Amino acid sequence: MNSVLSIKNLKKYYGKIKAVDGITFELYPGEVVGLIGPNGAGKSTTLKTIMGLLRKTEGEIKVCGYDYKDKEARKKLSYIPEIPDIYPMLTVWEHMKFIALAYNLDNWEKEALRYLEAYDLLDKKDELGANLSKGMRQKVMVICGLLYKPEVMLFDEPFVGLDPKAIRELKDTIRELKKEGKSVLLSTHMLDSVQNLGDRVLILKAGKLIYEGTLEEVMEKAGPNGTLEDLFLEVTK
């Protein structure tokens, strides 16, 4: 099976600081992979570099066989950052419209309305981005990321700022994406979410990939009553 995201020897240095130091991994269709690690491990830097928001120092990034800077690769990739960044003078609905125009989407309205209803934003449809709470801005970003149906979705701490219902909805969305054969790279400190949603886990520490394994392997390594948290604390101490 061909990978939908291929990272080879990725490095991102800031002068002498090695934020990402030669990591290699692949993502396959229908996979949810947890990217975890302590603060400063290089998780957000990895996601931003894959998206082209940061310039890589070295290495190869391919999305569905295309170089990550290729226009085709950009259509197949979506990124939900930790801090939601939406346009303050556009309404919620205008954000949907903007995505539809940017990606030449047809008949997108029904899908957009379905997401707005699921994420309790229907009554905020005509509200300006500037007037939304952080949690609501996060929901708008999630919906915009889902609307054009990318092959690979990168989530950076997506549960932060969401209310319990929205967290449940997002988890259901991730499960739905998996069923549809889409791939998710999920960076989060909520390890129980990775344990419940993930197929594999990647653990970063000081810019290096120090552990990679399936959830089955993780549970086996953690012991009979062990958890992902136990393994995480063991390998990162």
Rank of each mutant, 00 (worst) to 15 (best):
A73C: 02
N131P: 04
W93Q: 01
G135A: 01
R175V: 09
L162P: 09
L146T: 01
L121Y: 10
E127M: 10
H95T: 02
L113V: 13
D172Y: 11
L146Y: 02
E117N: 15
D123L: 13
L162I: 13
L154M: 05
A166R: 08
R168F: 13
K124S: 15
D123G: 08
L113M: 13
F159M: 12
V92Y: 03
S133F: 11
Y68C: 06
D106P: 10
L122M: 08
Y79L: 02
N104G: 14
I174P: 04
Q138I: 10
D156A: 07
G129H: 02
I99V: 15
L154S: 08
L122Y: 12
K75M: 09
K178G: 09
D126T: 08
W108L: 06
L105S: 04
K125F: 06
S78R: 01
L154I: 10
A100P: 00
K179T: 14
K179Q: 07
P150I: 03
K139C: 06
I86G: 05
Y115W: 14
F155L: 14
R175Q: 11
I80E: 06
I174T: 05
K69M: 08
V140K: 09
R74P: 04
T91G: 06
D123N: 15
I174V: 15
K76Q: 11
F98C: 04
Y115P: 12
A102G: 01
W108P: 12
S133P: 07
A100Q: 00
V160K: 11
G129V: 08
V160N: 12
Y115A: 12
G181A: 14
K139S: 07
L132N: 10
P84D: 05
K149A: 12
M96A: 08
N131A: 08
A118N: 11
A100E: 01
D67W: 09
I174R: 07
G135Y: 05
M141T: 15
K171P: 12
L116H: 10
A130G: 03
D172V: 12
